[in-house]
Design a protein around this nucleic acid. Structure first.
Lengths: 118, 118
DNA sequence: CCATTATATGTCCATATCGGAATATATCAA
DNA sequence: TTGATATATTCCGATATGGACATATAATGG
């Protein structure tokens, strides 16, 4: 077996930076392919292929609008990623027990502070 | 160019399910490799290889403890993923404006319901 | 019908994957 | 030293990628 298909998962689909860029544009509202091509400065076939992957994972929907195809974001499949991350949120918010970090922490607290930990 | 290396990113590293499983175990505290092998039921070399990837991305730290190597979670590299997702959180929380979805929504509410969305 | 615009698909290549099997390395024990 | 235990690395094969380029499909306007 090789690496899981990019279409296997939102995890896999979103691992590709261009694909993330595409979604980032689509958060601003639906767009026809050429808009994406222009905004991202990528070759049109590339964009189409990335859109295919996103579509297969359900991250975008398409609508035919005359000779254009308008793509629209559907963020739902991202939720599992978010959910998975929840377990770890505390881990990067919380201080580590490595000595240097702990010292930093103490220093910060001594300094008066204006916010507890978030 | 082929697909980005798994070690390129936390995004890429975490796209692999087993790697996520490993991290999921490590949230519970540091573990030597064999513990992971046992808990995950994977071949030892496989686990070692996945751990290498996680190490290269900085998601785990290692400590030598006698003849064992104890791995410890470092969730920091996951933060970029979380940050990226923030833009989309509203998108799956909010209701969509597609007619069918809206109707569904109304229906569900009328029905009293015993399960929201998953 | 033909040309043009908008998008999708197919072919090719270099690259890197995950997993399995075998083996290397390292530490401890007798 | 020899052996056992714990972990890492190497070699292999099947697979699929992203990108470049060429081409197919589809809709629109003469």
């Amino acid at each position: 077996m090789a690496r899981a298909a990019t279409t296997a998962d939102a995890f896999n689909a979103v691992a590709e930076p261009r694909r993330r860029q595409i979604l980032d544009v689509l958060v601003g509202g639906e767009r026809p392919v050429n808009d994406l091509v222009a905004q991202l400065g990528l070759a049109q076939p590339l964009v189409s292929k990335h859109l295919r992957v996103l579509r297969e994972v359900g991250l975008v929907d398409v609508r035919d609008e005359g000779r254009q195809r308008v793509y629209r974001l559907n963020a739902h499949p991202l939720k599992p990623i978010h959910d998975w991350l929840q377990n770890y949120e505390r881990s990067w918010a919380q201080r580590f027990d490595r000595l240097d970090v702990v010292l930093q922490e103490l220093e910060d607290q001594e300094k008066g502070d204006d916010g507890g930990d978030e």
